[in-house]
Design a protein around this nucleic acid. Sequence first.
DNA 1: TGGTTAATTAACTTATAGGTTAAATATAAA
DNA 2: TTTATATTTAACCTATAAGTTAATTAACCA
Lengths: 123, 123
Amino acid sequence: MQDQLSQTFAALADPTRRAILAHLSQGEANVSDLAKPFLKDMSLPAITKHLKVLEKAGLVTKTRDAQWRPCKLNGEALKTASDWMEQYRQYWEESFDRLDAYLKTVTAKKKATAKGKKNGRKK
Amino acid sequence: MQDQLSQTFAALADPTRRAILAHLSQGEANVSDLAKPFLKDMSLPAITKHLKVLEKAGLVTKTRDAQWRPCKLNGEALKTASDWMEQYRQYWEESFDRLDAYLKTVTAKKKATAKGKKNGRKK
DNA sequence: TGGTTAATTAACTTATAGGTTAAATATAAA
DNA sequence: TTTATATTTAACCTATAAGTTAATTAACCA
């Protein structure tokens, strides 16, 4: 079994599953509601499997109501993933970008030199 | 070939690749630099493959310098993924959470009853 | 020229993701 | 008690992800 963060990203790496999450962002829905937009393209058991992936990733919570299985979005796992990405924000925000990248490079070079390791990079 | 966002999330769904990104956040590095921490666990060609996944996902850019291949982090793909997640922020930020979920449910019900219109929501 | 270093490619193995159809389960409704 | 509805499970198929080892390419160096 993989670590939770890997499972979360893996769950998000499928357009069907992201569409299911989008649907759930409109509110609770049961399995056949969620399946309906996809039944032209795939079977109901396929959706059951997608939901299982989303559940294991912690992105969706499934409860019981008679023969229905109401599903709802679970924000926590998304937050974990978002927090992980947050540490890279500086790398996509302009202006800072080049300066920071430069500073990081300098630091890296200093470290390499201090350790007495040649680092094979020129310029 | 998959859509870009799926490829990005798939690339992030592996701890080795996330560690490579973390390394690159400290500055440029070539393939063997990046491989070093993993050579106890896997071969160099394995790292080559991981880098290829990261490149295709747009997360890493590889250039040439003699026989070396300096790699650097590319923030844009991360931003795309982060932007996608952003739309769910409300689902992991407390206080809003329950109220908003409730409102969404009400809206969904009304839609079902009124057989109404499309909703294209944003923000 | 030949040797060394850096990295990739090729060919292969194994596990798993994502789909299928058919059968099974669970609850409600008639 | 049977039938209908909602969903899951089982068994299976196929493509691909992730690793391996061995061979190959490319550039530099002596």
